[in-house]
């Protein structure tokens, strides 16, 4: 399931990885450096992550993006999410991509509270599709959004706007889902194998039906959709 933008894959980003499994941390590091990105640091728990970011920020070397696991020592519950929320508040320019064994609508809502700029929340399995995963890292580093399709499905399913959502055509629902994942129009067009113009038409129909003001910036568009679904 591709969800990346090929155009920005050449950009080199600086990454900090927080993951308690050494195997996975090494794997992620290899995967990212192999694609030409720089892994500034790798840590094993949330406290170390917050400390490392603070030190890097002091030296004026704030990374572009943090890739963090949700469950880390000491309690193995939601340290990653809490650290991510904290880091986003402390460093608004820092992209945060949270990886998890399971994705939960509730964590997504907590991560997205306030802004969908530079946020990612993906199933760990997605690293198996290397290119798309790296694309997502880059997208988040550049202020975009990368939400897992499963999270989006939960958000759509949980939304209180079911009556409006059932008014959308199946294609429009599909486009809405992809939008919520944080994709650009051209990425949506590629995925659905339709023209950019067709996607634009769907998007404007969706905004019309949901009663939202059309929005240009991709990440603002994601936020509008998510706010709508959550309200």
């Amino acid at each position: 399931m591709p969800w990346g933008d090929r155009e920005i894959v050449e950009d080199r980003v600086r990454v900090v990885i927080a993951e308690d499994s050494v195997l996975l941390r090494e794997g992620l590091t290899r995967l990212l450096t192999d694609r030409g990105h720089e892994v500034v640091a790798g840590v094993g728990d949330a406290d170390a992550l917050v400390k490392t970011i603070a030190e890097l920020a002091d030296q004026g070397e704030l990374p572009d993006v943090v890739v963090a696991d949700v469950r880390m020592p000491p309690t193995h519950t939601d340290e990653g999410v809490r650290a991510a929320v904290l880091l986003r508040r402390q460093h608004p320019g820092l992209g945060v991509l949270v990886l998890s064994q399971y994705v939960e609508e509730r964590y997504a809502t907590e991560l997205l509270a306030g802004s969908s700029r530079g946020v990612g929340y993906l199933l760990k399995d997605r690293v198996a599709d290397v290119r798309e995963f790296v694309d997502a890292v880059v997208r988040v580093a550049e202020g975009g959004t990368a939400l897992d399709p499963e999270v989006v499905a939960q958000l759509l399913g949980r939304s209180r706007k079911q009556d409006v959502l059932t008014g959308l055509t199946p294609r429009e629902r599909e486009v809405l889902g992809l939008m919520a994942e944080g994709r650009t129009n051209s990425a949506i067009a590629r995925q659905l194998v339709v023209s950019d113009g067709a996607v634009e038409k769907h998007v404007s129909n969706i905004f019309l039906k949901l009663g939202l003001a059309p929005s240009d910036g991709d990440h603002r568009r994601v936020l509008a959709v998510l706010t709508y679904l959550n309200s």
Binding site: V103, E104, E105, R106, E150, Q154, L156, G157, R158
Partner: peptide, 11 residues
Amino acid sequence: DAALSAVASRC
């Protein structure tokens, strides 16, 4: 509440 979201989405 949070856990039931995923259950509902699988329905």
